[in-house]
Write a protein that binds this DNA or RNA. Structure first.
Length: 565
RNA sequence: UGGGGUGUCGUCAAGUGGUAAGACACAGGAUUUUGGUUCCUGCAUUCGGAGGUUCGAAUCCUCCCACCCCAGCCA
């Protein structure tokens, strides 16, 4: 499907591509690529780039390659390539058979390097790291030529061949592009294009001891694959002249590099360095900790791929540095889960309720639909008995204004069950803590309806005490207390901004019996509480563990908060 | 202080000389057996600032200001 003139403009990148297509550029092909380095796990910032590249390809009838930018063996591992592949797939994208590795092109790149040498456009430099830095100059002072810059083509060819053959120590020589040591763009001051690195590569093993640098490898990989639009983030803007330089000198297919602003999300961090620190210092349990902004963390938290894709679409694509409010991500998951999740009841902090006028050995099966707006989801049976649990938050001895829930003498509805009235409060003699409520029910309100027109303001969720399943529920909250933990002036280390209450594990929760054996990864809404999923690591059919994905919007909490001020 | 970028509502973001879309957030209200959902309503006389061009400027010109990126043999 090709976009037509009538299609509305979505963002500046799609506008560029639409214009290119109209001008018959690239024989009207569109080929993009997602090019991660396999040195870590994917996070939601990568998801933005994945959605951009794969969606653009699909919209313009093109393809998007998955290419691993594996030019630095000392940082890369197969474990990462596997996790990246599975994350991209989980997000719902398909690269078909277009799976590549920059390392696939090492031979070809070497030939290109030789060509540059022959053309007098590259030379072997034998300065060490510090010397190269000194010769490079500074932002305001031009650099000066390396003493090795004038080596003959023959000498350079010989030296480079011997670098490749493994005759030299790591760091003793590099191959450099011969450009301009006085360029105002630091990237053009004779950048290194090959370095000696005796490290086993996760794919090529010990075949190579020299590896190309990003600037050389990336543009050539794009060119070899026939990429038309090479989309990357803003910090590569200064690298674009170099990207163009190599392709022009080598006179090969010349993709267009386009830069966009990377994602920043409030109340979290997205830099690899910081995410590594969170894992290594044990602030989280791992890369897939449900509080992590990684794809695997979001997945375990209960986020759906659809919600993440929707989010990436809504945030847009532009060039300005921005900080997206995490409330938008939360909105996206709520919207998706509202439609998809079966409603069930679970009590997080149980308070025992005895219905004094309910027959002791009686058990009724009440009917509860799984979804208020979707009859197609069916319903389940809810056992009701004399002893129940309700949420502690749903009872107040001294109810504040506008509190609709249970209090001494008050009547509320138990969802899909009966109206009950609180008759007596039992407290622990020592602590004064409320330990049990005695209530009476109105048998004429079965199902939660009253025929006499009597209205009740509150509806509570509940479970039958003898029938409920014990479960652990993990309540997750924002990882950081500050909107921008990475940029706090008075805080030395971003970990000082961590939210100490980002995880609260409740171990004596009770959930309705229909959840018995719930499958890991399955999702539900605990009515009035939020959306939850069965943890994919720690949950077992006989010992359920739920993760709170996100709370429901809570207007009572807002009222309460306002009243306190 | 050299170079490259970017400034439009609290947060994203359209807008490309014809009189400021949309989303989230927020605030009201209606409906509701989830204080959920849904539905209404409100929310930029002004586009970083100052000048200028023009009948007309967020859009063009000039100057200024702020913020981000670059001095890896990382990507």
């Amino acid at each position: 499907m090709t976009t037509t003139d009538s299609s509305p403009s979505r963002d500046f990148i799609r506008n560029i591509i639409a214009k290119d297509l109209k001008a018959n550029k690239n024989e009207c092909r569109v080929v993009t690529r997602f090019p991660p380095e396999p040195n870590g796990y994917l996070h939601i910032g990568h998801a933005k780039s994945i959605c951009l590249n794969f969606d653009i390809a699909a919209e313009f009838g093109g393809v998007c390659n998955l290419r691993f930018d594996d030019t630095n063996p000392s940082k890369e591992e197969v474990e990462y390539v596997e996790s990246i592949k599975s994350d991209v797939r989980w997000l719902g994208f398909d690269w078909y058979n277009m799976l590549f590795y920059a390392s696939d092109y090492f031979d070809q790149m070497c030939r290109y390097a030789v060509q540059l040498i022959k053309d007098g456009k590259a030379y072997v430099c034998s300065l060490n790291t510090e010397e190269i830095r000194e010769y490079r100059g500074t932002l305001t002072k031009p650099g000066k030529d390396s003493p090795y810059r004038k080596r003959s083509v023959e000498e350079n060819l010989d030296l480079f061949e011997r670098m490749r053959a493994g005759e030299f120590e790591d760091g003793s020589h590099v191959l450099r592009a011969k450009i301009d040591m006085a360029s105002p763009n630091m990237n053009m001051r004779d950048p290194t294009i090959y370095r000696i690195r005796r490290v086993a590569h996760h794919r090529t093993g010990n075949k190579w001891c020299i590896y190309p640098m990003y600037d050389f490898a990336h543009c050539l990989s794009d060119s070899i694959e026939g990429i038309t639009h090479s989309i990357c983030t803003l910090e590569f803007e200064d690298n674009r002249p170099l990207y163009d330089w190599f392709l022009d000198r080598l006179n090969v297919l010349h993709p267009q590099q386009i830069e966009f602003a990377r994602l920043n999300l409030s109340y979290t961090v997205l830099s690899k360095r910081k995410l590594v620190q969170l894992v290594e210092q044990g602030h989280v349990t791992g890369w897939d900790d449900p509080r992590m902004p990684t794809v695997s963390g979001l997945r375990r938290r209960g986020y759906t791929p659809e919600s993440i894709r929707d989010f990436c679409e809504r945030i847009g694509v532009a060039k300005r540095d921005s900080m997206v409010d995490i409330a938008l991500l939360e909105h996206c998951i709520r919207e998706d889960l509202n439609e998809k999740s079966p409603r069930v009841m679970g009590v997080l902090r149980p308070l025992r309720v005895v219905i004094d006028n309910y027959p002791e050995d009686q058990v009724e099966e009440l009917e509860g639909p799984y979804h208020p707006e979707d009859q197609g989801m069916g319903s389940r049976k809810l056992p009701f008995s004399r002893e129940l649990y309700i949420e502690r938050d749903d009872f107040r001895e001294d109810p504040p204004k506008k509190y609709f829930r249970l209090a001494p003498g008050r009547e509320v509805r138990l969802r899909y069950a009966y109206y009950i009235r609180c008759e007596e409060v039992v407290k622990d003699e020592q602590t004064g803590e409320v330990v049990e409520l005695h209530c009476t029910y109105d048998p004429k309100t079965r199902g939660g309806w009253s025929s006499d027109g009597r209205k009740v303001k509150g509806t509570l969720h509940w479970v039958s005490a003898p029938h409920a399943l014990k479960a652990e529920v993990r309540l997750y909250d924002r990882l950081f207390e500050k909107a921008n933990p990475g940029d706090q002036k008075d805080v030395p280390d971003f970990t000082a901004c961590l939210n100490p209450r980002s995880l609260e594990a409740l171990t004596s929760c009770r959930v309705e019996p229909s959840l018995a054996g719930a499958a890991p990864g399955s999702r539900c809404q605990f009515e009035r509480l939020g959306y939850f999923c069965v943890d994919s690591v720690d949950s077992y059919p006989e010992a359920l563990v739920f993760n709170r994905t996100v709370t429901l919007r809570d207007s009572w909490a807002k009222i309460e908060k306002k009243a306190k001020k």
